[in-house]
Write a protein that binds this DNA or RNA. Sequence first.
DNA 1: TTTTGAGTTGTTCGA
DNA 2: GTCGAACAACTCAAA
Length: 481
Amino acid sequence: MPATTIVWFRHDLRLDDNPALAAAAARGAVVPVYIWAPDEEAPWEPGAAARWWLHGSLGKLAAALAKAGAPLVIRRGGSLATLREIAAAVGATHVTWNRRYEPAVVQRDTAIKQALAADGLTVESFNGGLLYEPAHVATKEGKPYQVFTPFWRALLARDEPAAPVAAPRKLVPPPKQAAGLDVADLGLLPTIPWAGTMQKTWSPGEAGARKRLDAFLERPLTNYGTDRDRPDHAGTSGLSAHLHCGEISPRRVWHAVRDAVGGKPAAKLAGSPEVYLRELGWREFAGHLLFHFPHTAAAPLRADYAKFPWAHDPVGLRAWQRGRTGFPIVDAGMRQLWATGWMHNRVRMIVASFLVKDLRVSWLEGARWFWDTLVDADLAANTLGWQWAAGCGADAAPYFRIFNPTTQGEKFDPDGTYVRTWVPELAKLPAGDIHQPAAAAASVLSKAGVSLGRDYPEPIVDHAAARKRALEALKAVSKGK
DNA sequence: TTTTGAGTTGTTCGA
DNA sequence: GTCGAACAACTCAAA
């Protein structure tokens, strides 16, 4: 009997460097499948922005697969039951996929693997989403890393990540096709058309991912080290959402960066190229942490923080979400997030610090908001980022590290360009005042057409006082165990 | 087992 | 305006 392999697509919506697809194509007929089963990922089912992205990405994947010869079968419903149905319909002999590493998904996939094997199917899974298998990275004691720098050094000491595999040229469909839905039937698009700016900002899909990588590498990489910190410049790669959906593989990016700087081994790189690869290292570290500490999506890694007295402040939380805190850099970031589904990394740190330290609202509230609004929402990265900001994660950073939103704005958006883009009511303020409108002279404000409290809110907290309160609360936590 | 060096991203105060 | 020190103590990773 000729082999027919179901390739179950998940966070690997690409043909390039897709080990599961390559293995299937090399063996015989291929049945590409995507199953929409959000409830299996509860409470972290994809948020609104991620669904919008997914809609576009699936459309592009379906077109590319059809062109290659094997149309994508799109379904909704329980993953196991659906795979079984399709396997029966097409007479599949094999099922294959690229692994995901979120704890709930690992558990589900393990059960599915056993069930399908019991049905008599041959099941194979591959690593297509991380540079290295998280279970294979460990300290000399065999334990998972909890500090980034030694983790990164350990990665650099290994063999380089495997070379990417090319997309299969041609796919052979099975003699009998399986029925499927149209992407539109999944209902991923918002019912209210709020995604206009996202449409203009992003190109979901494999081709869009590659274009963005090429554009990023076309510019000299030499300034990445400092440019990436400037929200007023397009200094970052902008690949996060593409990587999250697997429209491009981290190995492809890794090797493209190395090729762009002359093919030197990663361990020998210095300066900006190393700084960029290190960002892939952080993505890797996030996957590593969530895999080895599965409880951290919901609870702090540092157990003593479980008792932290978070404030119940729905009004403050709402002001933060809407970008109405009265701190321009915070509001600019939150509005950029709302409009584009993305926020510059430097600003993510600033708004996160503001929520958890100035407002003392739980990092989980922030994580949930980001989860719903980010096109690149990734459970591992989101968890690491928020726990880092809250000081309860994999980082021994001192608790007194509290960002001053005004200073940060002045430092990283010195001309106020970023604030002017996203907080247009402040656009006419001079650079010297734009990060601190409440301290500006009355004449400056009126000349800029800003009436505080009417056009733009007064600061909702006094940062100096909030900082003191946060320090006291944090001190109590570290002393009180 | 014990020891030692080190830890993404900061702020404020006082000289 | 600039600079260095203080902000505290802990945990991790490796020797």
